[in-house]
Design a protein around this nucleic acid. Sequence first.
DNA 1: AAGGTGACCGGCC
DNA 2: TGGCCGGCCACCT
Length: 113
Amino acid sequence: MVKIPNPANDNFFEKVYAIARQIPYGKVTSYGAIAKAIGSAQSARMVGWAMNGAHNREDVPAHRVVNRFGLLTGKHHFDGTNLMQQLLENEGIEVTDNQVVDFEKHFWMPEVQ
DNA sequence: AAGGTGACCGGCC
DNA sequence: TGGCCGGCCACCT
């Protein structure tokens, strides 16, 4: 079932999107980092859920958000099996075995809103 | 209305 | 980062 959140009414989602849109080209961040930025450090799961809705929005680069180990845990939610990896590699990020190479090097820490 | 689920994280072994 | 567990909270049935 595809859930289509109402952008106007979902403040939580908007916050997540606001952060996600700021991720620079060629950089990645983690769900936990975003959760921290929106003031819910322990609710990283919600960020993941928000990313689900973010799929509808072209502005939100969900492929630049991975888990804390740099693993592409959300790749299964993209159309193709390896679309997420393709997008990242297209931005100059090496991906091997569903994992971002030199994750710390490409990591981008979002600023608290 | 209550319980299950999840694109996670931190702590522990 | 292997495995397990408790916590977190919006969303779905």
